[in-house]
Write a protein that binds this DNA or RNA. Structure first.
Length: 269
DNA sequence: ACTATTTCCTGGATGC
DNA sequence: TGCATCCAGGAAATAG
């Protein structure tokens, strides 16, 4: 499931491969995502546009587009199973391909998403903003203030994109494990000392995951179709019943806010 | 203003 | 082997 490190990896790959390229034609399938902009509007905006830059904002990918009729942005959210691939036109069209952009270089940009939780949207240039703070950029004081007065479990707060943009279920569990904090703790109950552990834990786990090309748990691959490697370094997520790598206690799994949460009953307080 | 719950969607895993 | 059921989860919608 693409979270910040996976989206960052894909965006870097796309920046390397398609920045400077020009979209010459656009096909949108009959049953695409629930689009946030109309199919016609997306096709019209992409058609003829030069891809100036591809970058990540939260869990979103932003294509900055240069157009004769005014610059624009193509914003892609991959949801659970979305893939944005650069492929040769001859390649077979995978099931659940919802959009194909033909590039001047002769390649194709294909958006594939079986579960259709992804979202596509176009906007005028510079309109799109992250819904919350970037975890890798935010300063500690602003970070600490995000949780003040919040009764919701810290796990839910970390998943709330309006607070921090980019953290999903895997990296929330991994960050809380590293910080030694139980996922069900009320966000406001975290002491300053705990916040001072959580803040670098989030940044470390995200940076290590980016360095490993992300976590491939189910569907995630980068723009070249290659899987990430960080899943083998998970210490909590997906390890229910397995021994804690620190103390040996079996990792527990509980459901918080409808999401499975993995934690060590001994190391996390 | 918050918080919790439900809904969307398909493929893979599981159970009988 | 086949069929039904469950589960995964990001975020918007809905309910409290």
């Amino acid at each position: 499931m693409p979270e910040l490190p996976e989206v960052e990896t894909i965006a870097r790959g796309l920046q390397r491969q398609v920045a400077g390229d020009v979209i010459e034609s656009v096909w949108i399938g009959a049953k695409p995502e629930p689009l946030k902009s109309s199919a016609r509007e997306i096709a019209r905006t992409l058609d003829g546009a030069r891809i100036a830059q591809v970058r990540r904002v939260g869990k979103h990918m932003v294509f900055d587009l240069e157009r004769k009729n005014g610059n624009a942005q193509w914003i892609v959210h991959l949801g659970m199973t979305g893939r944005m691939l650069v492929i040769d036109p001859g390649a077979e069209i995978a099931k659940h391909t919802h959009l194909i952009a033909t590039l001047r270089s002769g390649r194709e940009l294909r958006f594939v998403d079986p579960r259709r939780f992804g979202r596509l949207e176009v906007r005028r240039a510079d309109e799109f903003q992250a819904p919350g703070q970037e975890p890798l950029d935010v300063g500690f004081e602003i970070f600490a203030r995000l949780f003040r007065g919040r009764k919701t479990p810290i796990k839910s707060a970390l998943l709330n994109q309006k607070l921090l943009a980019g953290i999903g279920n895997i990296y929330a569990d991994e960050s809380l494990f590293r910080a030694g904090i139980r996922p069900r703790r009320r966000a406001a109950s975290l002491t300053r000392a705990e916040l001072q552990r959580l803040y670098p834990a989030i940044q470390q786990v995200l940076n290590e995951a980016i360095a490993s090309g992300g976590s491939s748990v189910s569907d995630y691959v980068n723009a070249e179709g290659t899987e990430g490697l960080f899943q083998i370094q998970h210490r909590a997520y997906g390890r229910e019943g397995e021994p804690c790598l620190t103390c040996g206690s079996p990792i527990k799994r509980t459901v918080i806010a409808g999401r499975s949460s993995h934690w060590c009953p001994n190391c996390q307080k």
